[in-house]
Amino acid sequence: MPSIFSYQSAEVDWCESNFVRSAVIAEYYNTISNVSFFVLSPALLYLNRQYCQKKAVPLYFGKLGWATKQPGIFSMYFHMTLSYVGQLLDELSILWTLAVAYSFWYPQAYFPKCIKTRRHFFWLTGTTTVISTLMSFIKPTLNAYALNCIAFHLLYMTWRELKKCNDKRVHRMAAVMVMWWVLAITSWISDRWLCWLWQAINFPYFHSFWHVLIALSLLYCCPLVIYFDVSYEMPSFKPKLEYWPSDSWPVVVPYVTLEEPHKQC
């Protein structure tokens, strides 16, 4: 009986050929493309340090920054081994990171009517996460599809917030985030459904593109979440979107600064 920690040739495999570049890395490019998560997480934490200092419980944001590295670590392990346990760690780390983000940053204005406080919402999110975790063992092949569907709710929430905001920089950042997400999900679907085509032309790298593109989408998503959180939870400040190193650079890292007094967006 094969070990759940060892290479499995079953349905968890992706389009990239196995052990082409390394005898110990099953999918070479799918593994190393996760480096983008390790680069962007500390950059976002550093640039948004003003928000971390002003937040009532800055440790929350620190925990999220730490948690965002988990998908990168476990995704590397999964693509390195293509094991069953690697697949579950990869997918569950994403689920748990989303649970943390929803618990701490989901706007209270959108809570269900039966939920009155943030603490009650923590319990709701925790219960949902436990149930989802248990269900992920039932049909693991559906996990990735279910996780990607959560993006539609995040896009819907972004659209609702943009309707209340007139800041053109916010709208532009949201548009860039959606652009990267569309490119990312297109790469993911192409790798999953058109593998025969990419293997025929010897270009099976779209899952690697997915890792980089979804990281870029998160690079714009996180400052948007901070921007709206400041608007809701820190009314004495006005959030302002900035770009490092400069607005004029073709490649930038967005972040949020806080200004006084607050003016309604």
Rank of each mutant, 00 (worst) to 15 (best):
P2K: 12
I4T: 08
F5M: 11
S6E: 14
E11P: 03
D13A: 10
C15H: 06
N18T: 09
F19V: 04
V24R: 06
V24P: 01
E27P: 11
N30M: 07
N34D: 07
F38T: 08
Y46F: 15
R49Q: 07
K54T: 12
K55S: 14
A56P: 02
L59P: 00
L59D: 11
Y60C: 10
G62L: 13
L64Q: 02
K69F: 15
Y77T: 10
H79I: 08
T81M: 11
T81F: 08
L82V: 10
D90C: 10
I94D: 04
W96K: 08
T97G: 11
V100W: 14
A101S: 12
Y102G: 03
Y102I: 14
S103V: 00
Y106C: 10
P107S: 04
A109V: 09
P112S: 07
P112K: 11
C114P: 00
K116R: 11
L124E: 05
T129R: 01
T129A: 12
T129Q: 02
N143F: 12
A144W: 06
Y145Q: 09
A146N: 01
A146E: 02
L147N: 01
I150D: 06
Y156R: 09
Y156P: 00
R160I: 04
D167K: 00
K168N: 14
R172G: 05
M173F: 00
A175E: 08
W181Y: 15
W181N: 03
A184N: 04
A184T: 03
A184C: 11
T186Y: 08
T186D: 06
W188D: 02
I189C: 12
W193V: 12
W196L: 03
I201F: 09
Y205H: 11
F206G: 03
S208M: 00
W210K: 03
W210Y: 05
L213M: 14
A215V: 15
L216R: 05
S217M: 08
C221N: 07
P223F: 09
D229W: 06
Y232C: 14
E233Q: 13
M234P: 04
P235H: 05
S236Y: 00
K240G: 01
Y243T: 04
Y243M: 15
Y243C: 10
P245A: 00
P245N: 02
W249Q: 14
P250C: 05
P250L: 10
V252C: 10
P254L: 05
T257Q: 12
E260A: 08
H262A: 15
C265L: 12
C265Y: 11
